[in-house]
Amino acid sequence: MTKTSSATPAVDLEQESRNATKAMFAEFWYYFSQNKGAVVGLSVFATLVLIALFAPLVAPHDPDVQYRDALLVPPFWADGGSTAYLLGTDAVGRDILSRLIFGSRFSLFIGVIVVTIALVGGITIGLIAGYMRGAVDTFIMRVMDIILAFPSLLLALVLVAILGPGLVNAMIAIAIVLQPHFVRLTRAAVLAERNRDYVVAAKVAGAGHFRLMFKTILPNCLAPLIVQATLSFSNAILDAAALGFLGMGAQPPTPEWGTMLAEAREFILRAWWVVTFPGLAILITVLAINLVGDGLRDALDPKLKRS
């Protein structure tokens, strides 16, 4: 009897914790689902992720194989099109649909890596600036202001020119360009939280600076950072495509959407499909991610929650 009675409160607390978590997710999904555009964007984005994961199974052809007897074949519904190449082929006979499918892997990979680097670095620097204040805060924020003073794509081009063309260097450059947004957002959230009662109580209890910053203050600053990460994801894909188009990002024959656009420039008047479909892929992906970000903002920001 003693063991049963002593275990009951622990079980009750665990059940209450589970119920609270379920209620939190239910509330989040309710406000998120109220934004129909966000639901559509999430569906499109989930489809893109599945396509990227199963690209070898979904793609009808190898993206790098050149079919010399099928140069600039139109899409299957156009005059002269072929059902073997649903979206047509490019100037060297590569299947555009297959290259778009494999290109989704590169675009999503770029977004994940860039946002991860910018998020981790931005949160760390922003926490230090907002928590330490004084000269440290002033120095960090002036550096961020200098970065923000330049147009993002121009600064990314300069950094890639210094580091050298390539996909890895392009991701590093884009992460540096996006980082000030996370730094400023984290700093503002820390300034709003650092003098609250729960932080003061943690200080009195003997919590160190590291614990105060990363375990006490940071969890209460995550909501706006999640929204910013989503929007930065789409910016990373767009900037990577722009760098690829300018020849400073992924290099041929990599099936990256911006590089595909760059290779198709000279055929835009006589083979519209080689430009149209990579451009539509970028447009749909960026739009879907932005819609998801808008829905996350509605669900996570209490000021915007609709009754």
Rank of each mutant, 00 (worst) to 15 (best):
T116E: 07
A118V: 10
L159K: 03
I140Y: 05
I140P: 00
M141S: 14
I123R: 04
L157M: 15
I128N: 01
G126D: 04
I125N: 05
A129T: 04
S107N: 06
I125G: 03
R133W: 01
T124K: 04
I110E: 07
A129D: 03
T124V: 15
V158N: 00
V160K: 01
V115D: 03
M144E: 06
A129S: 13
A156Y: 00
I113Q: 12
L157K: 05
A149Y: 11
V136G: 06
L119C: 02
D137V: 13
L127K: 04
A149T: 13
L159A: 04
A135W: 15
D145M: 14
R142H: 10
I140M: 06
L108K: 04
L127I: 03
I128W: 05
L155R: 12
R142N: 11
L127S: 01
I113V: 15
D137Q: 15
A129P: 00
F109E: 12
P151I: 12
D145E: 10
L155C: 08
A149M: 13
M144Q: 10
I128C: 05
A129H: 05
V160W: 04
I128H: 03
G130F: 06
V158C: 02
I128K: 06
R142A: 12
V115W: 12
L153H: 00
S152I: 02
V120N: 03
T124I: 15
F102S: 01
G103W: 07
T124N: 08
F102C: 01
L127E: 01
I117K: 06
T124R: 07
F102Y: 08
L127F: 01
P151T: 08
I110A: 13
G122E: 14
L108C: 05
V114W: 02
V136N: 04
I140R: 01
A149V: 13
L119T: 09
A118H: 10
I125D: 05
V160Y: 02
I117Q: 05
M144V: 15
V143T: 14
I128E: 00
I110K: 04
L108P: 02
D137R: 14
A156I: 03
T124H: 09
L119I: 03
L155F: 13
S152M: 07
L153F: 11
G122Y: 05
V160P: 00
Y131L: 08
L159T: 02
G134N: 15
D145V: 11
Y131N: 02
G111N: 08
I147D: 04
L157F: 05
